[in-house]
Design a binder for these strands. Structure first.
Lengths: 343, 343
DNA sequence: CATTAGCACTCAGCCTTTCGGAGTGCTAAT
DNA sequence: ATTAGCACTCCGAAAGGCTGAGTGCTAATG
C-alpha cells in the first residue's frame, strides 16, 4: 500500500485513470462523480484530486482543465489496482487462427504473430525473432551462384533460415562446395551458433587444416556465412496509432515513425526482457528511450523448453488499455511458445 | 510540338513547373519574371499564364493565388521540355557503395537498393523482387524440424531463397526426406518455377508413381513448398515524405501510409512495367490508383541477360525533381542489373 | 471534522472580425 | 503586341470576444 493513499483516494485515482484511458481527455471532478456512482460531491473529489496532484499521481495541463494521470499513477495502477482481465473468446480465436505455421516462411510466422498482436490490441505489435547466435546449428549449405559467388544457407535447430551471398577470390566448383559443406556439417553438428563461431576460429589456427586447401577455404567461407546479421524485429500495425487522438498532430506522427524506423534502440530494450521471464511493462520514460515518450510497452517472452527464445509485445500510448492488452500479450506469447514446440 | 504552344509559352510553363517543384507554392506572374530573367512584364506573363490555364496546363487554387502545374503540364514537361540531368558523383558513389552483395541476405540486397534509392532521391525507394514464379528452379531441400514438421528450402537460379514450414500427417525420417529431395532435384532441374508446378501436377497423375509411397509423398510435399507466396516489395524511406509540405497535414500522412501498407495495388502497377523496358513514369492519376493521388512514380527494370527480372523506382509527390530522379532511377537499375549478373 | 454548496476566477477552444499582401483580370496607353 | 495602372479577390495571420468546463477557496452544514 502506498503511503497517504486511502481507499477513497484509490477509487478516485482508478476512476481518473480508466476514464482517461477511454477518452484521452483530462478528467474533471464532475466526470468522476457522474461516471462512477460515487456518493460524494464534486467538491470532495476535487479536494482528493488536489491531494493526488500533490503526491504526484495526477497532473493538470492547465488550471481550468481536468486532471490526467502521471506515469507514477499508471505504475501504481498496474501494480496495485489493476484487475487483469482475460482474453475474449473472439480474440483468442483470432490469435489462434493466425498462429499457424503451415505454408509460411519462418519469418512469416513472426510477422503474422506481430500482425495478430496489433490487430487484436489495436496498437502496434512487435516481435523480436530469436537471436540467431543463441540458436543451435543444424545445417549449412553452399550453392554456387556464379564464378565467384556463393550462396550460403544456414539453418538453425528452430528452423530459422539465413542466407548470405559471399564473393570469392577464385572460382570454386560445385562439388568442392558440397564437400566443404559436408565437412562443416559434421564438424559443427549440435553446437550453438556462438560456439560455432569460436570453433571456426579455433580450427583456423590448426596447423594441419591450414595446409589443406579445401578445409581452409571451407572455414573462410563459413566464417563469412556466420557473420552477425542484424536481429530481426517485426513491427506491425503502425497505422493503428494514427487513429489515436494523442498522435493526431503531424509532428508526433513523424517522431514515432522515425523511432520505429531505427529498430536498434528497441532491440536493446527488448533484449533486456530476455532475462526477465513473463510479462514486463515499461511505462513512458521507464524504457529510458526518448523515442518512447508518451508510449508504453508490454512484453512477454516466448520459450522453447528451458531456453528463452525471444520477446514479443505491444507498443501503445501510455494510456493504453492495460487490463485488456496484458492478457493478450501473455496469451500470444504462450501461443507462440506452443507453436514453436517441435514434438 | 504541342498545338498552341510557342516558345515563350513553353519557357513560362517550364519556369512555373520548376519553381513549383522547388517551392511547392503557387507561382505568380511576378515570381516567374524575377526568378527567370525574362524580358517581359508581369502583365504579359499573366496573359500567357491565363492562356496556359485555358489549355489545361496550369490551374489556380483560387482567384488571387499563383498557378500550379497540372498533371498534363508535368507530362508535357517530361516529354518535351525536360533536360534529363546526370547523376552527381557523390550520389553515384553512394548508390555504388550500397550496391554490394557480400555478406548480405538476398532480400537484404533489394532492401539496401531500396534504401539507396530513397536516400539519394529523398523520396521513397521501391524495389519489387523478381517473381519467384518466373525464376529457374535450382534446388530444393527438406529439413526435419520435428516429428510432423518439415522445413522446405527452395533456391532459385538467381539465388533467391524461400522457405516454408510444412505440417505432415505422419512422421517421416530424415533419410527419407533426403531421398525425396534428391528425387525432386533431379526431376526438376532447370525448369522455371511455373513449369515446376505443372510438372508436379502431371507427375502426380502418373500411375507408377502414385503407388510408390516415397515419390507420392515427395510430390505432395513439394506441392506445398511451391505454393505461391506473396511477391516481395521493399519500400523504404517512408519518413522522407513527412518533410514535404504537401503532406504536412496528418490526414494525408495517414492515407499514404495506409496505401503503402497494402502493397498489392502497387505490385499490379509495377508488374505492368515489366513489359515496358527502361524508365517509365506515372504522374498522379496516370497510375489509375487512387492511393497515388498527388504522387508520381518513376520506375525502371533490372534484367539478367534477356530476362527482365523486376522493377524498381521512386515514389514522390507529383512535383518531384524529375530531372534529378529519373537518372537516379535509371542508374540504380543498371547497377542492380550489373550486381545480379553472375559471370 | 469531514463534507458540501456556492461563487469568483481561469483559460483553452471556437468563432468572428479585421487587415495586409500577393496576385489576378481588365482597360487604356504605348 | 506589350505594358502600366488600377480595382478587385481572397487567403491567412492576428486580434478580440464569448463560452463552458473546471478549478480553488470559503463558509455553511450535519
Amino acid at each position: 500500500m502506498h503511503p497517504g493513499m486511502n481507499i477513497r483516494s484509490r477509487q478516485i485515482l482508478e476512476a481518473v485513470i480508466e476514464d482517461y484511458i477511454t477518452t484521452a481527455e483530462p478528467i474533471g471532478s464532475g466526470a468522476v462523480r457522474s461516471r462512477h456512482g460515487l456518493s460524494l460531491s464534486s467538491a470532495t473529489i476535487r479536494n482528493v484530486m488536489a491531494e493526488l496532484e500533490e503526491t504526484g499521481f495526477l497532473a493538470s495541463p492547465h488550471t481550468s482543465a481536468g486532471r490526467i494521470p502521471t506515469e507514477k499513477a499508471y505504475r501504481f495502477y498496474i501494480d496495485s489496482l489493476l484487475a487483469v482481465g482475460s482474453v475474449d473468446r473472439s480474440e483468442r480465436e483470432e490469435i489462434r487462427k493466425r498462429c499457424c505455421m503451415t505454408g509460411k516462411d519462418v519469418d512469416g510466422v513472426f510477422r503474422e504473430v506481430s500482425q495478430a498482436l496489433s490487430s487484436v490490441s489495436h496498437y502496434m505489435g512487435i516481435v523480436a525473432a530469436p537471436r540467431f547466435n543463441s540458436n543451435l546449428f543444424r545445417q549449412i549449405d553452399f550453392i554456387r551462384l556464379g564464378a565467384r559467388r556463393v550462396l550460403a544457407i544456414l539453418v538453425s535447430q528452430s528452423g530459422s533460415v539465413q542466407n548470405r551471398i559471399i564473393e570469392l577470390q577464385e572460382d570454386v566448383a560445385a562439388t568442392e562446395l558440397q564437400k566443404m559443406a559436408n565437412y562443416l556439417n559434421s564438424m559443427l553438428h549440435g553446437l550453438t551458433i556462438a560456439a560455432v563461431k569460436s570453433r571456426i576460429l579455433k580450427e583456423m589456427e590448426n596447423e594441419k587444416i591450414r595446409y589443406d586447401n579445401l578445409l581452409a577455404n571451407a572455414l573462410k567461407l563459413s566464417q563469412q556465412a556466420f557473420d552477425e546479421a542484424g536481429a530481426e524485429l517485426f513491427i506491425e500495425g503502425q497505422t493503428n496509432i494514427f487513429d489515436l487522438p494523442e498522435f493526431a498532430d503531424a509532428e508526433k506522427m513523424k517522431s514515432i515513425f522515425r523511432a520505429m524506423e531505427q529498430k536498434s534502440q528497441l532491440l536493446v530494450l527488448l533484449d533486456s526482457c530476455l532475462q526477465a521471464p513473463g510479462v514486463n511493462i515499461f511505462i513512458g520514460s521507464e524504457s529510458h528511450l526518448n523515442c518512447m515518450t508518451g508510449m508504453s510497452l508490454i512484453t512477454s517472452t516466448y520459450v522453447s523448453g528451458r531456453n528463452t527464445l525471444g520477446v514479443l509485445g505491444v507498443i501503445g500510448p501510455t494510456r493504453m488499455g492495460y487490463s485488456k492488452v496484458i492478457p493478450i500479450v501473455d496469451y500470444t506469447a504462450k501461443m507462440l511458445t506452443k507453436l514453436l514446440h517441435n514434438d
